[in-house]
Structure formats: C-alpha cells, structure tokens
Simulated assay, not measured.
Amino acid sequence: MTQLALLARLSADDRLPVERLTRHPRLPLVAGAATGCRLVRIWDCGGGQVRELAPVDLGLAPEPDPADWWRPDGPPPVAWHPEQPLLVVADGNTLTRWTPDGPAAAAQAPAVYHHLAFSPDGRALWAKPSGDSSHVLDLATGAATPGPYWDTGVGVHPSGELVATLVSDQAATFCLFARPGDGDAQAMRQLRHALVFTADGYGTPLFSANGRHLAIRGNSYFESVDVFAFPSLRRVLTRTFSEDQSEPWPPDNLAWDARPGVLWIGTPTGSLLELDVEAQETTEHAFPADAPVSALAATASGDLLVARTNGELALLSVRPAAPVPEPTDDVTVFLAETDEVPLEGELEEHLVYTDGGGTWEYQELDDNQAMS
C-alpha cells in the first residue's frame, strides 16, 4: 500500500500562490511562479528539506510591445538546464539567468517569448515567440536562428533522444514528436507520427519516469487528462476531472511517480489522487490541509512537491519508493517506424495521425472530416 509521508512544510505567499512548479530534471531544485507575480521563487528540496534560495525578482512589468499581438496571461516562462543548476526566466524582451549564486542581470532577448525549453544536451535554448515560428538561441553568443513551429512547452523523454510538444488552434491540436538537433544544427527535427486532439488549450506533454507513458493535460473546454503508452501511442486512459467550469482544477496538477504507470493528480479539495493508468484504479490521499492544490511536481529524487492556494508548500515522500528505471530501446523502436517531416510543404500534409485508437494519413483524415 502506498503511503505519503510529510518531509517538510514551508509557507510562501497566500496572496499569489504558486500556480506552476518546474523541477530540475536531475538536481533537487524546483522553481515556482504565479500569474501576476514578478517573483520567481526557487527551492532546494534535497535531503528531505525545503530550503528557499535567492529568487528572480523581475521588478516592474515591462511596457507591452505593440508588435506582440498576444501576451501570456500565466506565470512567466522558465526553463532548467538539463545538467547544470541554471534557470532561465523570460520576461518581455529580456532573459534572466539564475544560478545558486543568485540571478544575473537581465539580458536583451530577440523577441518576447511565451515558452522556453532547453535542448536535451543543454547547448541551446528553444524559445517560442508570437507567430508561426520558433527560435533556437545559442547560449554562448545569444544568436537566434529559426526553428520549427511549436506553441506549448516541450516534454523530454528520459532518454534525451526524443521530445514532444504541441501545435494547436481552436479546431485541433497536434502532439508532435521530434529528434533533438545535433552538431551546429540545434533545432528540433520534427517527425511524421503525431497525436491528434480536438480543441485547444492542452498542457505540456509529460513523459513518465521510465518513458513508457505520456500524459497530456487538457483542454480549453473541460478538465481532463489523456494517457498514452509509448512507443505504441495507444490510448491507455482518458479521465475527465470536471465538466463544470465553476469548479476549476489546477492546470499544473500532474506528476509521474517513479513507479511505472503511476500518475499523481492534485485536486481542488486539497487531496492527491494516485492513478494506476494500466489498472485504471484510483486511490485518494487526503490531508489535514483544507486548501486546494494549486500546483504539483515530482522532484528529481521522486518526492512530491505540493503547492496550495493558502501559500503552503509541502514536500512528501512516496513509500515504498521505486528503483531507478532501467534504460529501454523504446525511442529506437519509435524512430524506426517514422520519418522526419520534409522541409517543404505544409506540416499537416506530411503527418501520420493517431488518436490513440486509429491511424490516418492526411488525405484520409481530410476525407473523413468531409464525410462527417
């Protein structure tokens, strides 16, 4: 039986509670941010403790850029370096680097960025401005080169050999897979096999600790999560949290356990749901705190960090703990069954779509939509 043990508790800001927790993939560091808050907080969660480090203070909000037709209404974008204790925060036309010594002076950015992600080798920063493009930023020089279009955060497979992100509009959303660039070409190399969803507003794809599952939080119209097996992309589970918009669930409320196939879900009641996605069994873990969960993350060591709307931050250990996942050849299997998207032509015309059940080529998908 799974038990959650409280390791540490910390009070933060109950006026602007943390809405997004971004964990470092290998170090016990977690960044927290909230909408409307100009402070990005960083915590060291090592050794069963929660210790707050120097934050990134963004100061006064920058004046909106008239050329930037859309500005994010969520927390400021952040990204952790895959190996180093380095965080990058985007704010208007600036980027700020944070290390354990504290934040450096903000540097001018080529554009206003709405999403950030490091390439898996840490050599480049992938950045998403407005419009149908992206930038690849060279960390050494700050130079920006064009990259393929994506519009949401980037999920990295634990092998570092594959990433997943989204391309969306109000009618449909594609979860695209890509190989990281190599050498001097650090842009994503998008692949033909893609997941397709209706509507928009989905969250960043989230690979499980062993890479065997992919969870996607969505969407604009109802609270839900979809889970797919990898590399088959078979839909394992769809769970609707609520169709009542008057009871919003926290958008950043998913975290994979280190145990295979176990997904944790934060709720508006303050409890955590333990979901076995293959068995489709759910266990609710209640806590004395009566404040709703505002964000949830799993640290690099496998503990759960829970933020609540009353400003509390709690670090929980999961017992029994899982062993370190063994490496697999799942990405090799996936890559063997797909190709890179050609540079010419429309992206949608090159994709092979699956909804987790059936699979279609572009023309078949277009014909099916015409018939319906």
Rank of each mutant, 00 (worst) to 15 (best):
T238K: 14
T94Y: 03
R51H: 04
D182G: 09
R239I: 04
N93T: 07
R212C: 11
N368G: 11
D303F: 07
H285E: 08
R41Y: 02
R259D: 14
R179T: 08
G59C: 06
T332H: 07
A209G: 10
P231G: 04
E63V: 02
L7E: 14
Y221F: 07
L137M: 15
E223T: 03
P103R: 07
G59E: 05
A171L: 09
Q84N: 09
S168T: 05
F222N: 09
L313E: 02
W264F: 15
G92I: 04
A79Y: 05
P62Y: 02
P327A: 06
P62C: 03
D226T: 08
T165E: 07
Q3Y: 12
L191V: 00
S11Q: 14
E243A: 11
V78G: 01
F197W: 09
D44R: 05
H285R: 08
A307N: 03
T198R: 15
A321G: 08
G122Q: 13
V30H: 08
T267Y: 10
R26Y: 00
D44M: 01
A127R: 06
T359E: 14
L315Q: 11
E247Y: 08
S11I: 04
N310D: 15
D200E: 13
D182Y: 04
L304S: 13
H193Y: 06
A34R: 11
G183K: 03
L195E: 07
R189C: 07
R259E: 15
F177Y: 14
A215W: 01
G270W: 10
F174S: 05
R41E: 13
L315M: 02
A33Q: 06
F174N: 10
T338A: 07
R123E: 15
P28L: 03
D184L: 11
P146R: 08
L86Y: 05
F174T: 09
V50T: 11
A140R: 13
V50Q: 02
T269W: 06
G36N: 06
L10V: 12
L272R: 03
A171D: 13
L116G: 00
M371C: 05
P320L: 07
S159H: 10
T299D: 04
L27C: 03
P148D: 11
P288C: 10
R239S: 09
T22S: 12
L6E: 15
K128R: 14
A127G: 07
D68P: 03
L191F: 00
S11F: 02
S224T: 11
L29W: 07
L139F: 08
Q245G: 11
Y149K: 06
Y113V: 03
E349P: 01
L237Q: 09
V18L: 13
